[in-house]
Computed example of a mutant assay.
Amino acid sequence: MKVIGMAGWSGSGKTTLVEKLIPHFTARGLRVSVIKHAHHGFDLDRPGKDSYRHREAGAVQVLMLSNERWVLMHELRGAPEPTLEEQLRLLAPCDLVLIEGYKEAAVPKIEIHRPSLGKPPLWPENPHVVAVASDADIDCPLPRLPLNEPAAVAAFILEYPDVQ
């Protein structure tokens, strides 16, 4: 299983890039999974639904399934957030895992950098950044990828030798 991250400041386009990359990989027959780290709380459930009521009643895990998909919700209930390594072990077998977020994780990552956001680049301080995808011409010693050309970014990922 190959693992590569997408890191950047909020609003840089990480989600959009991941969304555009997935079809390039699946068209090649690769099974792709995504881990997205959220710095804020989130809830996939809605008040009043059975699964919400089960979690509110104290269930640690609720597995919902249908003939189209399944989801396992796990309440931490004060336990520490699982490490990235623990999360990777939870995934079904696949060819490629795209990780969104986890700026500091020790996995090779592509920085999504938009100078127009006014935020500093991550690559000077982050040794795990292996390339920078940007919508502007930037001065950077790492490989520079055209942010608005997902096929070029996908090709870099497929050719990168150190993707785990």
Rank of each mutant, 00 (worst) to 15 (best):
L142V: 12
E125V: 13
S116C: 13
A131P: 06
P124M: 14
E104A: 14
M1Y: 01
P143G: 15
N148V: 07
K36G: 01
W9E: 01
V3D: 04
W123A: 15
Y160P: 02
T26W: 03
A131K: 10
Y52H: 10
L63M: 03
G58D: 05
V71S: 11
D162H: 12
Y160M: 00
H128L: 12
L84E: 00
R69M: 00
R77S: 09
K119A: 15
E111M: 12
W9R: 05
P108Y: 08
V71D: 08
Y102K: 06
P93K: 13
C94I: 07
P108K: 11
L76P: 05
G13Y: 11
P115S: 15
P127T: 05
V71A: 13
A59I: 01
A106H: 09
A79T: 11
A79F: 09
F25D: 05
G118S: 14
A57S: 07
G118T: 14
L88Q: 11
R69D: 00
G48A: 02
R89W: 03
L84T: 01
N148D: 14
S66K: 12
I99T: 03
I4D: 03
A151R: 08
R55G: 09
Y160L: 00
I35Q: 03
F25T: 08
D139C: 14
S66C: 12
L44E: 04
A151F: 04
R69Q: 01
I112K: 14
A106F: 01
L65K: 12
I157E: 05
N148P: 06
L30T: 02
L21R: 07
Q164S: 08
F156E: 04
V32I: 04
H74K: 09
H37L: 04
L88E: 10
W123D: 15
A38C: 01
E159C: 07
V132D: 14
P23R: 09
M73S: 11
S33N: 08
T15L: 02
Y102H: 11
P124S: 15
A79Y: 10
A59Y: 05
A79N: 11
L117Q: 14
A92F: 08
T26R: 07
G5T: 01
V71C: 10
L96V: 12
L21Q: 08
A27L: 02
P108M: 10
G78D: 07
L158T: 02
E86D: 04
D45K: 05
L84P: 00
V153I: 12
T15G: 06
S134E: 13
P143T: 15
C94P: 02
S116Y: 14
V153Q: 10
Q87E: 11
P23S: 08
G13T: 13
R31W: 01
Q87L: 12
V18S: 09
L96E: 09
G58I: 05
I99Y: 01
A57Q: 07
S33V: 03
P82I: 03
R28Q: 05
R28I: 00
C140H: 09
H39R: 09
P108F: 10
T83S: 15
T26Y: 02
L72K: 07
L98F: 12
P121I: 13
W70N: 07
L30Q: 11
C140Q: 09
W9L: 01
S134G: 15
H74W: 02
D137N: 14
D95T: 13
I157S: 07
P80D: 12
